[in-house]
């Protein structure tokens, strides 16, 4: 590996910004976040970046590296061509705050709009439940989510069409799926998914699945099954007939 590399880092705020080149030494095993920290310590003390665990577990250091949404802490320099500058930019689906830090507060507001977990009555007299590992497995996949919001960043409904007010994005469809498929949950979120959460906007391009650092099969395992539930409830012709007739009977 070469002994130094150039990082082309976006510096700026909500009003303006530009890419600035920093040359810094690189060594074996380094990840992009190490390079950013080195630049911050030695050349640009005020370079704004979020990070915490540095082990791919907290989902704080999301950015676009050479145009691809990734966690900086899990992107090794050895995966990148270092003969040209490595571009590091903030997530573009969210408003910039400063440098690599974006305003992700929208995500926290969206979550509150999804109906919370509501368990069935306990199975045992001591107030506990019984669940088979096989039933838990399916939901555990969704609960691996580290809320890095890279799926939100790459989703064209949010990124290009700015449907933040009408569509909750892949992250919160995964969240809704984890609740809907939770073995104990008895709440019904299907109508909300259609009307409030805009699930119909997703046209299953699977970009979210591709960028997920936790390898959650977002589209196939979470979004499509939810879409099927919506279809079952609202667009099933047989079901519609049954509903019409049962209503008539009541009227009669």
């Amino acid at each position: 590996m070469s002994t130094s590399a150039t990082f082309r880092v976006w510096r700026g705020d909500e009003t303006k910004g530009e890419l600035v080149d920093y040359k810094t030494p690189v060594s074996e095993g380094m990840v992009v976040l190490d390079a950013i920290h080195q630049i911050q310590a030695e050349q640009a003390n005020d370079l704004a970046v979020r990070w915490n665990c540095k082990a791919g577990k907290c989902g704080s250091c999301s950015a676009e590296i050479n145009g691809k949404p990734k966690l900086m802490c899990m992107t090794r320099l050895s995966e990148l061509p270092l003969d040209k500058p490595v571009t590091v930019e903030p997530m573009r689906s969210f408003k910039p705050i400063r440098d690599l830090v974006t305003d992700v507060s929208w995500n926290f507001r969206v979550k509150k709009e999804i109906k919370p977990f509501k368990p069935r009555t306990p199975d045992a007299p001591d107030g506990t439940w019984r669940m088979a590992q096989s039933d838990v497995d399916r939901v555990q996949e969704f609960r691996k989510c580290i809320e890095c919001f890279l799926c939100q960043d790459v989703c064209h409904v949010l990124r290009d069409h700015k449907k933040h007010e009408e569509f909750i994005g892949p992250r919160f469809l995964v969240y809704a799926a984890a609740l809907e498929m939770h073995p104990l949950d008895v709440e019904d979120r299907v109508a909300d998914l259609k009307r409030e959460h805009g699930i119909g906007y997703c046209n299953i391009t699977k970009c979210c699945t591709k960028v997920c650092p936790e390898s959650i099969t977002i589209t196939d395992n979470a979004i499509i099954p939810l879409k099927e539930r919506v279809v079952d409830e609202f667009y099933d012709p047989l079901g519609k007939l049954v509903k019409i007739f049962s209503r008539r009977k009541k009227d009669a």
């Binding site: 107030g127 506990t128 019984r130 669940m131 838990v136 939901v139 555990q140």
Partner: peptide, 19 residues
């Protein structure tokens, strides 16, 4: 711990379905 389960945590299970 049991309270966390009541709030939605999904722990790994024993063969008889407990935590």
């Amino acid at each position: 711990v049991r309270e966390l389960e009541a709030w939605g945590a999904l722990f790994d299970r024993t063969p008889d379905g407990r935590i």
